[in-house]
Design a protein around this nucleic acid. Structure first.
Lengths: 344, 344
DNA sequence: CTGAAAGCGCTAACAG
DNA sequence: CTGTTAGCGCTTTCAG
């Protein structure tokens, strides 16, 4: 189904001026006599004309679309991030080409190449692999885009792209220190996998907080999960079976946190009377259900906004080869709701 | 930051053929001698060339992008829908221009006009206003797009666009009938606002089920909410205060359902021993937390898929003016988890 | 099989 | 102020 749309020359003809003049009123560049301008505007209205951005892009040799590549739209984190990005694109007449990689690296590379053909002006991306392994092919594809790239939440090793990240270490540090101030001494952590940076960082924050507060690190209290609900559930059960159990648990992400809460609830362990708890990331439902769990909260929408603003700056830059990488590291907020308390 | 990308003529020059030939190997149209083809391919690889989709679009007078306009990405329903749409676009070399209207009609109209300039080939949209009021301007903007439009979940009055919807009536009907089979006779409904079609339909399904099963409709058991959590919460409190309370409640959407559960929990009303419950729409986290609430479940991702497939069919159609509107009405599924049971 | 050349719809000098 | 014209990067006849 193809319907030839109205073009600029249709307007020119109808209003008896040249296409150049029409173009001028369209971009209100130069001066156009008020009278002719009105004629043109009238024709535009009558024919219901909308200029073709694609012709314009070709002619100007620049588009107004940016690419956004995320691993999973259904993850509330990315939903928020996209909202944040949109809020900036909306104000700047930019379009968002959205790709959902499903955490699939192959798909991701394909998307990036598609976006290159679309001549996106810039890219905001959360790479699928938060990998340590150096992926030369991946990096070269990204670099071959030849447009500014802003990383979001996940880094790409050996790259010098701009990025917006979160300081996991300090978030965890604050949480643990809060436990300590409450009087807890035996504090467990359900950590993420050490192969991921957030996993490592959160564990690091935990250790640092203990050390700085003169509490010895006890390996028995360190548990390694995989960020999925089940592991939070199982590890919590293990914790409950310990001979000398902790009085507080820090859980490194929201899914494991749910698993942990599930295990505690099933075992009739009251929070915080029997076990104090702080988790990483909000869980909206818990708040709704009046379950007051303290969390380290990330400014998600803001991450999207900031990423887009960095990108915008790059787009407006004059120098082609600005080498100074902009890396913004946002701080999470510790939100206390009582679950961190220590029984007297 | 602008870097002139490699063009087709760079390739032509480097491989010493004409641009026409390069174009041919790019589209593997016509026959190209194997040998020259290889030369060209080699040059493409070496220069890391990617053809410009926008130049191609202009020349072919057709793009490969479709517009998707939703009211709120953060609503899990639309997240799923987008996944469904993506699954089809991915396979068909189509790009998705995504717009989030924030339930704002002005924004929505602006987006549609932007999409027109982008010369999208088709549009999938969930209109902001599920309105009865006839909005001539809105309709004309949509029609002026001059591309196939597929409505998703919400209808536009007096339009003849294709669409994918959900049969709310039958979903609710099944739920209520299930209550009745369990032995419930006093069944309440927390309905949505009657100004919305889903609101009306769900109430209609409720009434129909009662009538068909010879149970008189008792207006005291009909409560009107606004689809938001608070109203579910408050109305449930009202229900609990009734002199002759129902033994079962049907709640018309997920947010009100949460509110209802919250109220029941706070009042120590056990589900289903003290009050049976079925809600409309899944709430993922309830399942995770082992809260077994029966629901009428919508095939969300499938709605997106189907919508995109309808659109695809339209794009491939020969006739420009195919008048037969395609309207698919999907059936929800009643998922029983025990919360519908009647105490003996 | 391959090249020349006209256009796709618009912008941007360059004249006038 | 306004018109003419040469592209933007690609596809697509039309010849050869």
């Amino acid at each position: 189904m193809i319907i030839a749309p109205i073009t600029i020359s249709d307007i020119a003809k109808k209003s008896k001026v040249s296409v150049a003049t029409v173009s001028r009123v369209l971009n209100d560049s130069d001066k156009v006599k008020e009278q002719t301008k009105e004629k043109v505007l009238k024709a535009i209205k009558e024919l219901n004309y909308a200029p073709s951005d694609i012709a314009r892009s070709l002619s100007r040799n620049i588009t107004n679309t940016i690419g956004v590549v995320v691993p999973d739209i259904n993850n509330p984190f990315f939903g928020q991030v996209i909202k944040g990005i949109s809020s900036v694109t909306d104000k700047n007449d930019l379009y968002m080409l959205l790709c959902d990689t499903d955490e699939n690296e192959q798909k991701e590379m394909k998307f990036i190449e598609m976006l290159k053909r679309q001549r996106i002006r810039g890219l905001i991306i959360t790479p699928t692999a938060d990998n340590d392994k150096f992926n030369a092919k991946y990096l070269s594809i990204l670099e071959n885009l030849n447009v500014p790239v802003v990383l979001l939440d996940r880094d790409v090793k050996y790259s010098k792209f701009d990025g917006v990240f979160l300081d996991s270490i300090s978030g965890t540090y604050d949480a643990i220190e809060c436990f300590i101030k409450e009087g807890h001494r035996k504090i467990a952590i359900i950590s993420g996998p050490l192969s991921s940076k957030p996993g490592r960082d959160r564990l690091r924050g935990y250790k640092k907080a203990l050390t700085m507060n003169g509490i010895e690190i006890d390996d028995r209290y360190i548990f390694y999960g995989d960020f999925r609900l089940e592991s939070g559930y199982e590890l919590t059960q293990e914790i409950l079976k310990m001979e000398d159990p902790p009085t507080a648990i820090f859980v490194s992400n929201n899914m494991m946190n749910l698993g942990c809460i599930k295990a505690l609830t099933e075992a009739n362990v009251r929070i915080p009377e029997d076990m104090a708890l702080i988790g990483f990331d909000e869980i909206e439902l818990l708040n709704i259900m009046n379950m007051d769990i303290s969390v380290v909260s990330r400014p998600t929408a803001q991450m999207g906004e900031v990423a887009m603003e960095i990108l915008l700056d790059r787009l407006n830059e004059q120098k082609v080869d600005n080498q100074d990488t902009k890396r913004i590291i946002l701080l999470p907020t510790l939100i206390l709701r009582g679950s961190e308390k220590k029984a007297k």
